[in-house]
Protein backbone atom coordinates (compact mmCIF):
# COMPACT_ATOMS: atom_id res chain seq x y z
CA UNK A 1 0.00 0.00 0.00
CA UNK A 2 1.24 3.47 -0.87
CA UNK A 3 1.24 5.57 2.29
CA UNK A 4 2.62 8.74 0.75
CA UNK A 5 -0.08 11.39 0.33
CA UNK A 6 -0.63 11.54 -3.42
CA UNK A 7 -1.96 14.59 -5.19
CA UNK A 8 -3.70 12.55 -7.88
CA UNK A 9 -6.30 15.18 -8.67
CA UNK A 10 -3.72 17.89 -9.41
CA UNK A 11 -5.03 20.37 -11.98
CA UNK A 12 -8.63 19.13 -11.83
CA UNK A 13 -11.62 21.41 -11.33
CA UNK A 14 -11.89 20.26 -7.72
CA UNK A 15 -8.17 20.73 -7.03
CA UNK A 16 -8.49 24.33 -8.17
CA UNK A 17 -11.14 25.00 -5.54
CA UNK A 18 -10.34 26.41 -2.13
CA UNK A 19 -9.44 23.30 -0.06
CA UNK A 20 -11.78 24.50 2.70
CA UNK A 21 -14.64 23.83 0.30
CA UNK A 22 -13.71 20.15 0.10
CA UNK A 23 -13.74 19.80 3.88
CA UNK A 24 -16.93 21.80 4.49
CA UNK A 25 -18.65 20.15 1.52
CA UNK A 26 -17.86 16.69 2.86
CA UNK A 27 -19.09 17.56 6.35
CA UNK A 28 -22.36 18.99 4.98
CA UNK A 29 -22.83 15.97 2.71
CA UNK A 30 -22.20 13.37 5.44
CA UNK A 31 -24.60 15.03 7.87
CA UNK A 32 -27.21 15.39 5.13
CA UNK A 33 -26.83 11.77 4.01
CA UNK A 34 -27.24 10.28 7.49
CA UNK A 35 -30.70 11.85 7.70
CA UNK A 36 -31.98 10.30 4.46
CA UNK A 37 -33.57 6.83 4.27
CA UNK A 38 -35.74 7.25 1.18
CA UNK A 39 -33.82 5.32 -1.47
CA UNK A 40 -34.95 7.70 -4.24
CA UNK A 41 -33.35 10.64 -2.45
CA UNK A 42 -30.34 8.48 -1.63
CA UNK A 43 -29.84 7.84 -5.35
CA UNK A 44 -29.80 11.61 -5.87
CA UNK A 45 -27.10 11.89 -3.18
CA UNK A 46 -25.12 9.12 -4.85
CA UNK A 47 -25.30 11.04 -8.14
CA UNK A 48 -24.06 14.21 -6.41
CA UNK A 49 -21.24 12.29 -4.73
CA UNK A 50 -20.02 10.71 -7.96
CA UNK A 51 -20.26 14.02 -9.85
CA UNK A 52 -18.07 15.50 -7.11
CA UNK A 53 -15.71 12.53 -7.28
CA UNK A 54 -15.51 12.76 -11.07
CA UNK A 55 -14.64 16.43 -10.94
CA UNK A 56 -11.45 15.48 -9.03
CA UNK A 57 -10.26 13.45 -12.06
CA UNK A 58 -8.60 10.81 -9.87
CA UNK A 59 -7.17 8.08 -12.16
CA UNK A 60 -9.13 4.93 -11.39
CA UNK A 61 -6.08 2.67 -11.80
CA UNK A 62 -4.40 4.46 -8.88
CA UNK A 63 -7.29 3.88 -6.47
CA UNK A 64 -8.73 0.59 -7.75
CA UNK A 65 -7.55 -1.34 -4.70
CA UNK A 66 -9.06 1.25 -2.38
CA UNK A 67 -12.43 0.95 -4.11
CA UNK A 68 -12.29 -2.85 -3.97
CA UNK A 69 -11.59 -2.71 -0.24
CA UNK A 70 -14.33 -0.14 0.39
CA UNK A 71 -17.00 -2.01 -1.57
CA UNK A 72 -16.05 -5.35 0.00
CA UNK A 73 -16.13 -3.89 3.52
CA UNK A 74 -19.43 -2.08 3.01
CA UNK A 75 -20.99 -5.26 1.54
CA UNK A 76 -19.80 -7.30 4.50
CA UNK A 77 -21.11 -4.74 7.01
CA UNK A 78 -24.51 -4.52 5.35
CA UNK A 79 -24.90 -8.29 4.98
CA UNK A 80 -23.76 -8.99 8.55
CA UNK A 81 -26.15 -6.39 9.89
CA UNK A 82 -28.99 -7.89 7.86
CA UNK A 83 -28.27 -11.39 9.10
CA UNK A 84 -27.67 -10.50 12.76
CA UNK A 85 -30.64 -8.13 12.92
CA UNK A 86 -32.72 -11.18 11.92
CA UNK A 87 -34.56 -9.23 9.26
CA UNK A 88 -35.65 -6.51 11.70
CA UNK A 89 -35.76 -3.03 10.23
CA UNK A 90 -35.64 -0.43 12.97
CA UNK A 91 -38.14 1.96 11.40
CA UNK A 92 -40.70 -0.71 10.53
CA UNK A 93 -42.61 -2.80 13.10
CA UNK A 94 -42.14 -6.54 12.61
CA UNK A 95 -45.78 -7.18 11.73
CA UNK A 96 -45.74 -4.61 8.92
CA UNK A 97 -42.96 -6.11 6.80
CA UNK A 98 -43.68 -7.92 3.54
CA UNK A 99 -42.00 -11.26 4.00
CA UNK A 100 -40.47 -13.14 1.05
CA UNK A 101 -39.03 -16.09 2.92
CA UNK A 102 -36.14 -17.17 5.14
CA UNK A 103 -32.42 -17.51 4.52
CA UNK A 104 -31.29 -21.13 4.56
CA UNK A 105 -29.21 -22.30 7.56
CA UNK A 106 -29.44 -19.05 9.60
CA UNK A 107 -33.21 -18.69 9.16
CA UNK A 108 -33.11 -14.89 8.87
CA UNK A 109 -36.37 -13.51 7.48
CA UNK A 110 -36.01 -11.73 4.12
CA UNK A 111 -38.56 -9.02 3.42
CA UNK A 112 -39.04 -6.19 0.94
CA UNK A 113 -38.21 -3.77 3.75
CA UNK A 114 -35.00 -5.50 4.82
CA UNK A 115 -33.75 -5.61 1.20
CA UNK A 116 -34.47 -1.92 0.60
CA UNK A 117 -32.95 -1.07 3.98
CA UNK A 118 -29.75 -2.91 3.10
CA UNK A 119 -29.63 -1.32 -0.36
CA UNK A 120 -30.09 2.17 1.12
CA UNK A 121 -27.37 1.51 3.70
CA UNK A 122 -25.02 0.32 0.97
CA UNK A 123 -25.67 3.36 -1.23
CA UNK A 124 -25.18 5.73 1.67
CA UNK A 125 -21.79 4.31 2.55
CA UNK A 126 -20.70 4.35 -1.09
CA UNK A 127 -21.83 7.96 -1.49
CA UNK A 128 -19.90 9.05 1.60
CA UNK A 129 -16.80 7.20 0.42
CA UNK A 130 -16.98 8.78 -3.05
CA UNK A 131 -17.28 12.21 -1.45
CA UNK A 132 -14.33 11.47 0.83
CA UNK A 133 -11.82 10.42 -1.83
CA UNK A 134 -11.09 13.96 -3.09
CA UNK A 135 -10.17 15.01 0.44
CA UNK A 136 -7.15 12.72 0.26
CA UNK A 137 -6.27 13.09 -3.42
CA UNK A 138 -7.40 16.52 -4.60
CA UNK A 139 -5.93 18.74 -1.88
CA UNK A 140 -2.33 19.88 -2.06
CA UNK A 141 -0.72 18.02 0.90
CA UNK A 142 1.11 21.23 1.77
CA UNK A 143 -2.15 23.08 2.29
CA UNK A 144 -3.70 20.91 4.99
CA UNK A 145 -2.48 23.04 7.88
CA UNK A 146 -3.68 26.35 6.53
CA UNK A 147 -6.97 24.74 5.46
CA UNK A 148 -7.84 23.72 8.99
CA UNK A 149 -6.45 26.93 10.47
CA UNK A 150 -8.68 29.01 8.20
CA UNK A 151 -11.63 26.82 9.14
CA UNK A 152 -11.27 28.05 12.70
CA UNK A 153 -9.27 25.16 14.15
CA UNK A 154 -6.76 26.56 16.70
CA UNK A 155 -3.50 27.07 14.86
CA UNK A 156 -1.54 24.72 17.10
CA UNK A 157 -3.85 21.85 16.14
CA UNK A 158 -3.83 22.95 12.51
CA UNK A 159 -0.05 22.89 12.63
CA UNK A 160 -0.15 19.40 14.14
CA UNK A 161 -2.35 18.24 11.24
CA UNK A 162 0.10 19.78 8.78
CA UNK A 163 3.02 18.14 10.56
CA UNK A 164 1.22 14.77 10.56
CA UNK A 165 0.94 14.77 6.76
CA UNK A 166 4.59 15.75 6.45
CA UNK A 167 5.73 12.96 8.77
CA UNK A 168 3.87 10.20 6.92
CA UNK A 169 6.30 9.67 4.00
CA UNK A 170 9.40 9.53 6.21
CA UNK A 171 7.80 7.25 8.81
CA UNK A 172 6.52 4.97 6.05
CA UNK A 173 10.09 4.71 4.73
CA UNK A 174 11.40 3.99 8.25
CA UNK A 175 8.73 1.31 8.68
CA UNK A 176 9.79 -0.44 5.46
CA UNK A 177 13.45 -0.18 6.45
CA UNK A 178 12.70 -1.74 9.86
CA UNK A 179 10.79 -4.61 8.25
CA UNK A 180 13.64 -5.23 5.81
CA UNK A 181 16.23 -5.08 8.60
CA UNK A 182 14.33 -7.58 10.73
CA UNK A 183 13.80 -9.91 7.78
CA UNK A 184 17.52 -9.82 7.03
CA UNK A 185 18.01 -10.97 10.63
CA UNK A 186 15.72 -13.91 9.90
CA UNK A 187 12.50 -12.66 11.48
CA UNK A 188 9.36 -14.11 9.90
CA UNK A 189 6.51 -11.61 10.35
CA UNK A 190 3.78 -13.63 8.67
CA UNK A 191 1.19 -14.98 11.11
CA UNK A 192 1.73 -18.63 11.94
CA UNK A 193 -0.64 -20.79 13.91
CA UNK A 194 -4.03 -19.86 15.31
CA UNK A 195 -2.91 -18.07 18.46
CA UNK A 196 -3.62 -14.37 17.89
CA UNK A 197 -1.57 -13.29 20.92
CA UNK A 198 1.50 -15.14 19.62
CA UNK A 199 0.97 -13.58 16.20
CA UNK A 200 0.66 -10.17 17.82
CA UNK A 201 3.84 -10.67 19.83
CA UNK A 202 5.68 -11.39 16.57
CA UNK A 203 5.00 -7.79 15.52
CA UNK A 204 6.87 -6.34 18.51
CA UNK A 205 10.32 -6.32 16.76
CA UNK A 206 8.85 -4.16 14.00
CA UNK A 207 6.42 -1.89 15.83
CA UNK A 208 8.62 -1.01 18.80
CA UNK A 209 11.76 0.14 16.89
CA UNK A 210 9.67 2.11 14.38
CA UNK A 211 7.81 3.93 17.15
CA UNK A 212 10.78 4.55 19.42
CA UNK A 213 12.93 5.77 16.51
CA UNK A 214 10.19 8.21 15.53
CA UNK A 215 9.85 9.52 19.07
CA UNK A 216 13.57 9.89 19.71
CA UNK A 217 13.89 11.79 16.44
CA UNK A 218 11.20 14.23 17.56
CA UNK A 219 13.61 16.35 19.58
CA UNK A 220 15.09 17.87 16.41
CA UNK A 221 11.67 19.06 15.30
CA UNK A 222 10.81 20.33 18.78
CA UNK A 223 14.11 22.23 19.00
CA UNK A 224 13.57 23.74 15.55
CA UNK A 225 10.11 24.94 16.57
CA UNK A 226 11.30 26.32 19.90
CA UNK A 227 14.23 28.14 18.27
CA UNK A 228 11.74 29.83 15.93
CA UNK A 229 9.69 30.86 18.98
CA UNK A 230 6.72 28.73 17.97
CA UNK A 231 3.66 29.48 20.04
CA UNK A 232 4.68 32.93 21.22
CA UNK A 233 2.53 34.91 18.82
CA UNK A 234 -0.01 34.83 16.05
CA UNK A 235 1.14 32.64 13.19
CA UNK A 236 1.03 33.37 9.48
CA UNK A 237 0.92 30.72 6.74
CA UNK A 238 2.77 30.45 3.47
CA UNK A 239 -0.42 29.66 1.51
CA UNK A 240 -3.15 32.26 1.31
CA UNK A 241 -6.63 30.84 0.78
CA UNK A 242 -9.47 32.75 -0.89
CA UNK A 243 -12.95 31.67 -1.86
CA UNK A 244 -13.71 32.66 -5.45
CA UNK A 245 -17.22 33.05 -6.90
CA UNK A 246 -17.51 29.35 -7.86
CA UNK A 247 -16.39 28.28 -4.38
CA UNK A 248 -19.05 30.46 -2.78
CA UNK A 249 -21.79 29.08 -5.05
CA UNK A 250 -20.81 25.47 -4.33
CA UNK A 251 -20.51 26.21 -0.62
CA UNK A 252 -24.03 27.66 -0.55
CA UNK A 253 -25.27 24.60 -2.45
CA UNK A 254 -23.81 22.22 0.14
CA UNK A 255 -25.19 24.31 3.00
CA UNK A 256 -28.60 24.23 1.29
CA UNK A 257 -28.30 20.46 0.92
CA UNK A 258 -27.70 20.05 4.65
CA UNK A 259 -30.43 22.49 5.68
CA UNK A 260 -32.84 20.97 3.15
CA UNK A 261 -32.15 17.42 4.34
CA UNK A 262 -32.62 18.47 7.97
CA UNK A 263 -35.92 20.23 7.32
CA UNK A 264 -37.13 17.38 5.11
CA UNK A 265 -36.30 14.83 7.78
CA UNK A 266 -38.66 16.60 10.18
CA UNK A 267 -41.41 17.55 7.78
CA UNK A 268 -41.51 14.84 5.08
CA UNK A 269 -40.98 11.10 4.73
CA UNK A 270 -37.36 11.46 3.56
CA UNK A 271 -36.11 9.95 6.83
CA UNK A 272 -38.38 6.93 6.42
CA UNK A 273 -37.80 3.82 4.39
CA UNK A 274 -39.49 3.83 0.97
CA UNK A 275 -40.24 0.46 -0.60
CA UNK A 276 -40.87 0.43 -4.37
CA UNK A 277 -44.44 -0.79 -5.03
CA UNK A 278 -43.23 -3.56 -7.34
CA UNK A 279 -41.40 -5.14 -4.38
CA UNK A 280 -44.54 -5.48 -2.30
CA UNK A 281 -46.09 -8.90 -2.93
CA UNK A 282 -49.80 -9.27 -3.60
Amino acid sequence: MNFVPRYLGRGSWLARRDPRLLVVGLVCFVFAAIQVWDIRLMLVLVAIAFAWYRSARIPFGEVRRLWVFAIAFVSLLVVMNGVIASGRVQQVPGDLVHLYGYLPVVGTPVSAESIVFAATQFLRFIAMIAMGFPLAFAIDPGAFGVTFARLGVPYRFAFAVDLTWRFIPSFAADFRTTIDAQRVRGLDLSPTGRNPIANLARQVPVVVPTVVNAITGAEDTIDAMDLRAFGTGKRTWLHELRFDRTDRIVLVAFAALLIGATIAAWTTSSALLWVPPFMIPG
Partner: peptide, 14 residues
Amino acid sequence: IVYSAIGAALYGIL
Protein backbone atom coordinates in the same frame (compact mmCIF):
# COMPACT_ATOMS: atom_id res chain seq x y z
CA ILE B 1 2.21 19.27 18.95
CA VAL B 2 5.13 17.23 17.65
CA TYR B 3 4.29 14.10 19.64
CA SER B 4 0.65 14.40 18.53
CA ALA B 5 1.73 14.58 14.90
CA ILE B 6 4.12 11.66 15.31
CA GLY B 7 1.47 9.53 16.99
CA ALA B 8 -1.17 10.30 14.36
CA ALA B 9 1.22 9.73 11.46
CA LEU B 10 2.45 6.40 12.86
CA TYR B 11 -1.07 5.22 13.66
CA GLY B 12 -2.31 6.27 10.22
CA ILE B 13 0.47 4.33 8.51
CA LEU B 14 0.64 1.22 10.69
